[in-house]
């Protein structure tokens, strides 16, 4: 194995370990996010997103990391919107996402195994459908397109705004849970 694949495995171990520690291998717990009785999914996801975003911003600002060299997923507006809706339907139906289904299966949960089976079926079916829906599949293609590009705002301003929004979201989440 190459060094890059060894690193992939090590990063994966840390990723899976953290997801399990957070309780995200437990499908009924994840599903409670969508019935507003346990907002762990939101809290974990947005504290992770903000931590990585702030870390990358400051490492770039201090000259430790060249942020422009890091891969940004490309934007395809329409398929990402529709794909997100279909993904959300699947998420609340099964209570897991692709990463957490692997953790769930690893912790002995057979429902996680069933989700993995469904994921393979969905990827193969939609993979074969791609030529038939080619115009839609590539519609709204914008390449590497970030919020600072779209809003013509400095990187730091957007980072600051997203951080504030996440902190506001955490306060709302605590209130919702206290009420539930």
């Amino acid at each position: 194995m190459t060094d890059s694949l060894v690193l992939a495995f090590v990063i994966g171990v840390a990723f899976g370990f953290t997801l399990e520690r957070a309780g995200l291998a437990d499908a009924p717990k994840l599903a409670r996010q969508f019935y507003l009785t346990d907002l762990t999914v939101f809290k974990v996801m947005f504290s992770a997103l903000v931590t990585a975003m702030l870390g990358l911003f400051w490492l770039g600002r201090l000259g430790v990391v060249d942020v422009s060299a890091i891969y940004v997923p490309e934007t395809f507006m329409a398929p990402q919107f529709l794909g997100g809706l279909v993904f959300g339907l699947g998420f609340v139906a099964c209570g897991l996402c692709p990463g957490t289904s692997c953790v769930s299966a690893a912790t002995g949960r057979l429902d996680g195994v069933a989700v993995i089976g469904g994921l393979f079926a969905g990827v193969v079916a939609m993979g074969f459908a791609v030529p038939a829906i080619a115009p839609f599949f590539t519609s709204g293609a914008r390449g590497t397109f970030t919020i600072p590009d779209a809003l013509h705002l400095p990187y730091g301003v957007v980072v600051f705004a997203v951080t504030l929004m996440a902190l506001g979201g955490f306060m709302v989440a605590e209130r919702i849970e206290a009420r539930a």
């Binding site: 975003m53 997923p73 996402c97 469904g118 969905g122």
Partner: peptide
């Protein structure tokens, strides 16, 4: 649900890990 997520992830070029967490932190 797994099949719907698989189909959605093909359309979206990723899932909660590759799009939401990673692309979210990169402000895509």
């Amino acid at each position: 649900g797994g099949a719907a997520m698989g189909a959605g992830a093909v359309l979206a070029r990723g899932c909660t890990s590759g799009q939401a967490l990673t692309g979210g932190a990169m402000l895509s």
